[in-house]
Design a binder for these strands. Structure first.
Length: 226
DNA sequence: GCGACAG
DNA sequence: ATCTTGTCGC
């Protein structure tokens, strides 16, 4: 695998990433997607959970497809991106559902080359996206207060690129960064809103659950196969 | 050279 | 991410 070439590709795509400084006005009945993948070897089970911005669950979709390549830290977008893109395109054309925002496991611009999986998806689809990771990729300073809603910034070369966010009191935080076309602050605010009960946001949590079940050959009611 | 390393 | 046992809690 030619990592130098993939690095060039990431740097090229990073130039196309737009991060506004002001929030966008979403409507309670705009639609967002929560996305997660489970792997069995190179088989990828991609689940997409559709929700309204008020949090209400609409529908869940599943697609079994091939991983983009092996996993290499820092190059996750090339493994997870292609399967996700296939699933999104199938929903757009076959289900006629168009999201206003995408939430995905992993980082956005809080990445050494500012091109995590969320940014890759955002650039490829031209849709606003947020990356929410369970572990940091960049070092950060400071101590996070124990209460739900507490935040501290994540910096890259003295520039703020994301937020350490505590979604539940006394529970480990998550690491939020914009993927594409959404502000750092709104990315954090929306993530908190969409995480009413658990550490992981509901849309991603449901996608994780469905992808996990299908990766183990188990069926889940009310899931649409793409 | 050594350690660290999203999912 | 996956590999794995017991265990705590709703």
């Amino acid at each position: 695998m030619d990592l130098d070439l993939l690095r060039d590709e990431q740097e090229w795509l990073a130039k196309q990433v737009v991060i506004p400084s002001t929030p966008f006005d979403f409507t309670p009945y705009d639609i967002l997607f929560g996305i997660d993948i489970q792997y069995v070897g190179e088989q990828a089970f991609c689940a997409i959970s559709a929700h309204y911005f008020n949090g209400e669950h609409i529908q869940t979709f599943i697609l079994k497809t091939q991983a983009g390549m092996e996993y290499i830290s820092g190059f996750f977008c090339f493994r997870e991106g292609p399967p996700v893109l296939r699933a999104i395109r199938k929903i757009l054309e076959k289900q006629n559902i168009i999201p206003k925002l995408i939430l995905i496991d992993g980082h956005g611009i809080a990445h050494p080359r500012q091109l995590g999986i969320a940014s890759w998806i955002g650039v490829k689809t031209n849709l606003p996206s947020i990356g929410i990771a369970k572990r940091p990729l960049l070092k950060y300073e400071g101590t996070l207060a124990p209460e739900r809603g507490a935040t501290i910034p994540i910096r890259l070369k003295n520039k703020v690129v994301g937020t350490v966010l505590r979604t539940q009191t006394d529970i480990k935080p998550v690491f939020v960064s914009p993927g594409y076309n959404i502000s750092i602050e709104q990315a954090s605010d929306l993530t908190l809103q969409l995480s009413p009960s658990y550490r992981i946001s509901n849309p991603i949590r449901i996608a994780d659950h469905v992808a996990r079940a299908y990766s183990k050959e188990k069926k889940v009611a009310q899931v649409i196969s793409l």
